[in-house]
């Protein structure tokens, strides 16, 4: 499986390492050509304002939006979750997002860096016990649409959600040594396999 990891800014290298440890082939995504022949995309943490600007300046926003619209499976963490969201609260007025998942996300909802935290998170459908989740100036999901599955929450607020081929996390699975969420995503991509092939041909 070939997974494109958005590498404009942020923690892309740690995602690549996690995906490779699970046997996936990874491609850093900087220009539209890097999207050719990939089976999935990962949008890492970083500064969502910076990444959103660089998506425009590198001519990547429209091509990636088109692939996501055609059902390319995507996993977004922190800033990546903000980029995939339908609505961004407390963002910059010019900040664009892909609306690939029907959620409204509030930036920096847990406060500043001194409030960043680690917590053991119970995740729906994940075997092997609680997940060591690292929240860095983390966003939160304020509204999840009717078709969105909430897989984990903090204080009753969703922090891990899935809708069809899109998985989003407010925290950073790439910062812990636990590969279970990356595996969950890759398994999900595999299960969507035939659908994907059809869509790739349709492109």
């Amino acid at each position: 499986m070939r997974v494109s990891v958005l590498a404009l800014q942020g923690a892309s290298a740690l995602h690549e390492a996690a995906l490779r440890a699970l046997g996936a082939e990874t491609v850093p995504l900087r220009t539209p050509g890097d999207l050719d022949d990939v089976d999935a995309v990962v949008l890492p943490g970083g500064e969502s304002t910076t990444i959103s600007m660089m998506l425009e300046r590198n001519g990547l926003f429209e091509p990636l939006a088109a692939r996501l619209g055609a059902g390319l499976p995507a996993f977004g963490t922190c800033a990546g979750m903000i980029l995939l969201a339908d609505e961004v609260l407390d963002g910059r007025p010019d900040q664009r997002s892909f609306a690939a998942i029907d959620v409204a996300v509030r930036r920096n909802a847990f406060g500043r860096q001194v409030d960043s935290f680690e917590a053991d998170l119970r995740i729906e459908g994940l075997d092997g016990g609680d997940f060591p989740a690292v929240f860095i100036r983390a966003p939160v999901i304020e509204r999840a649409g009717p078709d969105v599955e909430v897989l984990a929450a903090v204080d009753g607020r969703p922090v891990l959600c899935r809708q069809g081929p899109v998985l989003v996390a407010a925290f950073h699975p790439e910062l812990s040594d636990d590969l279970r969420l990356h595996r969950l995503f890759l398994d999900h991509v595999t299960s969507l396999g035939p659908v994907l092939a059809d869509r790739a041909t349709a492109d």
């Binding site: 800014q9 942020g10 923690a11 892309s12 290298a13 740690l14 943490g45 970083g46 500064e47 922190c78 800033a79 860096q113 001194v114 409030d115 960043s116 935290f117 680690e118 917590a119 053991d120 998170l121 119970r122 729906e124 609680d130 690292v134 929240f135 860095i136 100036r137 909430v150 984990a152 929450a153 903090v154 204080d155 009753g156 969703p158 950073h172 910062l175 812990s176």
Partner: peptide, 23 residues
């Protein structure tokens, strides 16, 4: 869905984590 243990702030992973996001 709740956090099953307390939150821990100021850990090395959290401190280093922000640096990772600035890369």
């Amino acid at each position: 869905a709740a956090v099953t243990a307390g939150r821990e702030t100021g850990t090395m992973r959290v401190k280093r984590g922000l640096a990772e996001m600035l890369k």
